[in-house]
Amino acid sequence: MSPSLRRNLLTLIGILLVAMNLRPALTSISPVLRNIGEVMQLSAAQQGILTTLPVLFLGLSAPLAPLSARRMGMERTVLLAVLLLAASLAIRPFSGTAGLFIGTALAGACIGVMGVLLPGIVKRDFPQATSLTTGLYTAIMCLGAALAAGATEPLRLAFNENWSPALAFWCLPALTAGLVWWHQSGETHKPAARPHTPRSLLTDPLAWQVTLYMGLQSSLAYAVFGWLPTILQDRGLTPVEAGLALSTSIMSQIVTAITAPWLATRMRDERFMVTLVMSLTLIGIGGCIYAPANTLWLWVVILGLGQGGTFAMALTLLALRSRDPATAARLSGMAQGVGYTLAAFGPLITGILHDVFHGWEVTGVFLGVVGAVAILAGLGAGRRRHVLEH
């Protein structure tokens, strides 16, 4: 095996292992959120903040990723982030209320840094297979999210109904990813010298359309991650069934996470696909809230098919709207920094609306409006153009 092929294979394995850890810190909370609230005596507003914190810090930490990558290289930055993620997941359940909130915020920050850098690594090392590689790591990310959503409540029951070790369990996949990434982090690519200061993406309308699409679809995703089990429990499912339903929904994402980018790149542009997958997402959310309870499992699958495609398309747009890896990293930093900060309001407002109106009907209208605006942003972002083209 040639050195370059070996390095690319190690990079791909590392990307997939890191991707598996980009969601368990979030999806492991929601199945046991009610139990955490009872044990820690958290109000509904505090529970909403707990689901919002990691998303907020996904956005706040995004600008740190390119700064750190310029100093240490992308590989070493990812290594540091995944090891800090493992530490925060191990410590947060055993550190009281303050430790739970701080550890959850730190986990979100680590995930934000890794999420910003991975599209640039993919663009750099797999330029001829960007959509396929993006689909693969999105699918593995969905697998990790689904495992955490489905297994955390059974783990709690196995640990004598103690949620703390059930949450701490998810430090193990992060530690495994860190060990594998450590092995390859010595082969760091130094960023090429820039002959001039690049134009700011903040003045580019297309960059803002990509950012809005990323942020609004993420707002829906994290509202679902944080509150879908509670919605389904209110509609009659048991806690275990609700966790499994979220897991089923996330597992369904794998199908469209791979196929949506692949099909979209074979079309004239990406506008049809971003509209289709967001429409499926809205149909699934509507079904979970308004449809008869005996059809809930159908709607969680449709929801998963939509959300797998929306996130994969958001990541694909970061690569396709950029001419080179450096621009892809900058666009990723902007889209995820601004987008995830915007997305943090999704689960927060979802919790507030439920608290005020004592039901999910008004929340469903709010999520529908978010999805409609996301479609408008996606129609702009899906045009076959590049940022900073003019």
Rank of each mutant, 00 (worst) to 15 (best):
L12A: 14
L12K: 05
I15L: 15
L16M: 13
L17Y: 09
V18D: 07
V18N: 07
V18F: 05
A19N: 09
M20G: 11
N21F: 03
L22G: 02
L22N: 02
R23I: 01
R23K: 06
R23E: 03
P24W: 00
P24F: 01
L26A: 11
L26D: 01
T27F: 00
S28L: 03
S28F: 00
S28Y: 00
I29S: 00
I29T: 05
S30M: 00
S30D: 00
P31T: 00
P31E: 01
L33V: 02
R34V: 03
N35C: 00
N35E: 11
N35K: 02
I36E: 07
G37K: 04
V39T: 14
V39F: 15
V39P: 13
Q41S: 15
Q41H: 15
L42F: 15
L42K: 13
L42N: 14
Q46T: 15
Q47D: 02
G48Y: 11
I49L: 15
I49T: 15
L50S: 13
T51C: 10
T52V: 06
T52Q: 04
T52H: 06
L53R: 09
P54C: 12
L56T: 10
L56Y: 12
L56F: 14
F57Y: 13
G59S: 11
G59K: 11
L60S: 08
L60I: 11
L60W: 01
A62N: 05
A62T: 03
A62F: 02
P63A: 14
P63V: 11
P63I: 11
L64I: 04
L64S: 07
L64K: 07
A65M: 06
P66K: 13
S68L: 14
S68R: 04
A69C: 06
A69D: 07
R71S: 06
R71H: 06
M72V: 09
M72N: 07
G73T: 15
G73Q: 07
G73W: 08
G73E: 08
G73K: 07
M74Y: 00
M74G: 08
R76Y: 04
V78M: 06
L79H: 04
L79K: 04
L80A: 15
L83D: 03
L83I: 13
L85V: 13
L85S: 09
A86E: 04
A86M: 12
A86R: 12
A86W: 08
A87Y: 05
S88R: 10
A90G: 13
I91E: 01
I91S: 08
R92W: 02
F94Q: 05
T97E: 12
T97I: 14
A98T: 12
G99I: 12
G99Q: 08
G99P: 05
G99F: 11
L100S: 13
L100N: 10
T104L: 08
T104M: 05
T104W: 02
T104R: 05
L106S: 12
A107K: 09
G108I: 09
G108C: 12
G108S: 11
C110P: 05
C110S: 10
I111T: 10
I111P: 05
G112D: 05
M114P: 00
M114L: 08
M114C: 12
M114V: 12
G115E: 01
V116C: 07
V116G: 09
V116M: 13
L117S: 05
L117D: 03
L117G: 05
